[in-house]
Simulated assay, not measured.
Amino acid sequence: MAKELKVALIQSSLIWENPEQNRTNFSKKISSISSDVDLIILPEMFTTGFTMNPENLGKEQGPLTLEWMQKISREKKAALTGSLPFYENGSYTNRLFFVKSDGNYHHYDKRHTFTLAGEDKVYKAGSERLIVEYRGFRICPMVCYDLRFPVWARNTENYDVLIYAANWPKPRIAAWDTLLKARAIENMTYCIGVNRIGIDESGHEYPGHSAVYDCLGKQEAFSEKEEVVYTVLSKEHITSTRNQLKFLEDRDTFNFSE
């Protein structure tokens, strides 16, 4: 069982509704990662920006991006995760893929679609959480607006890492900063948020603030610019902290099917 998980967060601007160019750009950024990493995290809708017009992209773009993720993951010998518009069974979802270096993958469909932007009218909401077992760590990946809903993230399965891939705009960035730290503390887990930067086609500005918090709420990494951010997660830190501070044993239980 691995004692550490080496993670790279890619905080980047995105080209509006241009999957091919975004894949090319991220290929270059990922190829520049010189140190060995176990997991690479991309923002929400990393091939398009936060578009409400997925029909403009072509239904084939989702599978093409998944194939690209599998190729990159094999080449870097690391897992790769991020979300994208994906068409399946007559509907679009905001689907996060967690792709492993052997080509196997898991997916999670964003549970809380962003009603303020009309995401609920364009993308079908997911109904199941995802817990990925990876290199001795239990990882729970989520997407952007999910961050505002603590019950959905409640750590009833003793996961070690909570991830949010996001397009979180500048006017509400204080909520992003606060809630990432809160999710780490209340769930006694590492909490990682990966946001984009730049201005999208709708004029929304994104300031980054990608960050990593440990299970006590200590900030391990933070960035406001276009760059790759590195962090190392310690299994021993999680285990020893939970053994000393048994707060999770007093947690409430929830039935997610209700």
Rank of each mutant, 00 (worst) to 15 (best):
E55Q: 15
E205G: 10
G203Q: 03
R111P: 07
Q70V: 08
L130K: 08
L5K: 03
L248E: 10
D38P: 13
G62Q: 03
H209A: 11
L64T: 14
T93G: 09
P85Y: 05
A211Q: 13
E258M: 14
L162Q: 02
T156D: 13
G198D: 06
A165M: 12
I40E: 11
D102N: 07
H237W: 15
T81L: 10
D177A: 13
L180Y: 10
V132M: 03
L116W: 07
Y145E: 10
Y134S: 07
R251K: 12
W68D: 07
I238H: 13
I173W: 04
R242H: 15
H106G: 04
R183D: 01
T93F: 06
A182G: 12
E67I: 05
R23N: 06
Y105H: 11
S12H: 08
N104F: 03
D177V: 06
A174F: 09
L84N: 08
F254H: 15
F26N: 06
N25R: 04
R251F: 14
T47H: 04
M1W: 00
F97V: 04
S127W: 10
W68P: 01
K3W: 11
Q21L: 12
P63D: 14
V132W: 00
F114S: 02
A166G: 08
F114K: 01
A79I: 10
L84E: 09
A153K: 09
T81P: 00
I163Q: 02
P207W: 06
S13W: 00
E220F: 13
I192N: 05
G90P: 09
V228R: 01
E205Y: 12
T81Q: 00
E226H: 04
